[in-house]
Write a protein that binds this DNA or RNA. Structure first.
Lengths: 211, 211
DNA sequence: TACTGATTTTACCAATTGGTCAAAGAAAAT
DNA sequence: ATTTTCTTTGACCAATTGGTAAAATCAGTA
C-alpha cells in the first residue's frame, strides 16, 4: 500500500536509495537513448541495463518520456557553458579557439550526451524547442554581438558571427556524432583523431579570423 | 493464388504499376524514416502516406527493414559523386571549394536523404558499415592522397587531408541535419541561411588552404 | 520490537506493430 | 472471351511494449 514517491521532486528529502536508483536509471537510459534513439529504446532494455525491474523504474519516473525529458534537461546547462565563457574582454582569436577547444572537449568527454542532443534535433527538437528558442537563442545573439564588435573594431577578419558559431558547432560535434564513420574510415588504431582534430580546428579558425 | 512478385528484382521486367508503387512507397518511407528514425516509423504510417495498404506494401518489399536498406542503398552513389569529382589536375583551392559547394547543394537539395544518412551513422551505421569500409574508405584514401600531393608540391597550406574532409562533411551536412536548430535560432525569415553559409564556408576553406 | 512509510516484485493488460494468408479483383496475353 | 498472371484487400495473429494494481518486502525509527 505504498504511495508513489514524489515523481516531480516536489518533496524536500531525497533518500540515498532514491539518488542511487535514479542515477542508475538515467545512466542506463542515456546509454540506450543515445545509441538507439527514443523509439528504439525500450523500458525493458533500460531495466536490464540498470538492474532495476520495469515497474521499479516507473516508480521513480512516471513514464518513458519522463526519463527522456529529464536526460535532455540535464544537458542544457553544460551545453551553454562553453559559449557563456566567451569573454568580450579577452583576445578575440584565442577566445574563439578556446571556445572551439571546450566544445571539442565536451564532445569527447560526453559523447552519449552529444549524440542524444543530435538525435533530438534531427528528429525535430520536439522536447527542446523551448530551450533553443529562449536560452540558447538569447545567448547566441548576445555572443554574436560580441563577435560582431570585434569585427567592427577591426580585431578579427569580417565574418558572419552566426555562421561562425554554426560551423564551430558542426565541426566539434561531428567527432562524437559521426564517431562510427570516422572510426571506420580512419582505421581505429592509425591515429588519435581527437588530438589532430584539435590542431586542425584551431588552425582553421585562426586562419579564418586573422586579419 | 498469386505468387509474390519478384522481391529481389531478379525478374527481367518491371511493370509500370510496380515502378509507380515502389516509388510511392520509397518516397513515403524516406519522409518518415528521415524525420522519426527507423524505429519511430511504422508500416501503417508509410501505408497512409503512400496511399497503399499495409499488405500491399509488403507485396513490394519483404519487410520494413528491406525498405530501409533500399533507401540507404539508393543514397550511396549520390553520396560519393561530389568527392569523386575532385580533380587532381584542377586548381587545388577551387577544386576544394567546389567540392564544398557541391556538398552544400546536396544537403540543400536532399535534406531527407541527408538526415537519413546522419541518423544511420549516429545509431551505429549498422546497415552501412560495408559501404563505409569499402567504397567510401577507398575513395577517401585516394582523394586524401591527391590533397596530400598538393601540400607536398606547395600548392596549398599544410593540412591534414582526412581532417579537412571531415570538417567539410561536418559543416556542409550541418545545415540540413540541424535544420530545426538553425531555423529556431536564426529566426526563419531574417535571412537565407544557405546563401550566407555558402559564402562563409568558401571563405573559411579558402583561408585555410591559401599559402 | 513493532510500526510506518519507502521500495520492490509478481501478475497482468490493452494497444500497437510487423507480418501472414487466402481469396478477390484487375491486367495482360491467348 | 477466357485463361493466366499480377495486384490488392480483409481478416487475422503473435510478439512486443508502455504502463498499472496490489501485494510483499525492506529500512528506519519510536
Amino acid at each position: 500500500m505504498a504511495k508513489p514517491v514524489n515523481q516531480h521532486k516536489r518533496s524536500n528529502s531525497v533518500t540515498r536509495i532514491q539518488r542511487k536508483n535514479i542515477n542508475l536509471i538515467l545512466d542506463a537510459a542515456l546509454e540506450t537513448f543515445s545509441s538507439h534513439g527514443y523509439n528504439g529504446t525500450t523500458l525493458d532494455e533500460i531495466s536490464i541495463k540498470s538492474g532495476l525491474s520495469k515497474p521499479n523504474i516507473l516508480y521513480y519516473f512516471k513514464s518513458k518520456k519522463d526519463i527522456h525529458v529529464t536526460l535532455l534537461n540535464n544537458l542544457l546547462d553544460n551545453w551553454l557553458k562553453p559559449l557563456k565563457e566567451l569573454n568580450s574582454d579577452g583576445d578575440p582569436v584565442s577566445e574563439i579557439t578556446n571556445y572551439v577547444q571546450k566544445k571539442l572537449d565536451m564532445a569527447h568527454e560526453f559523447p552519449r550526451e552529444s549524440r542524444l542532443f543530435a538525435m533530438e534535433i534531427l528528429q525535430g527538437a520536439n522536447h527542446m524547442k523551448n530551450f533553443i528558442e529562449s536560452d540558447l537563442k538569447i545567448l547566441v545573439e548576445q555572443k554574436s554581438n560580441v563577435i560582431n564588435d570585434w569585427v567592427v573594431q577591426g580585431l578579427i577578419a569580417k565574418v558572419d558571427p552566426l555562421h561562425l558559431i554554426f560551423s564551430i558547432w558542426a565541426t566539434t560535434q561531428h567527432y562524437s556524432d559521426f564517431e562510427e564513420q570516422i572510426k571506420l574510415i580512419s582505421g581505429r588504431q592509425s591515429f588519435n583523431p581527437d588530438h589532430r582534430a584539435s590542431k586542425h580546428l584551431k588552425e582553421m579558425y585562426t586562419r579564418l579570423l586573422r586579419l
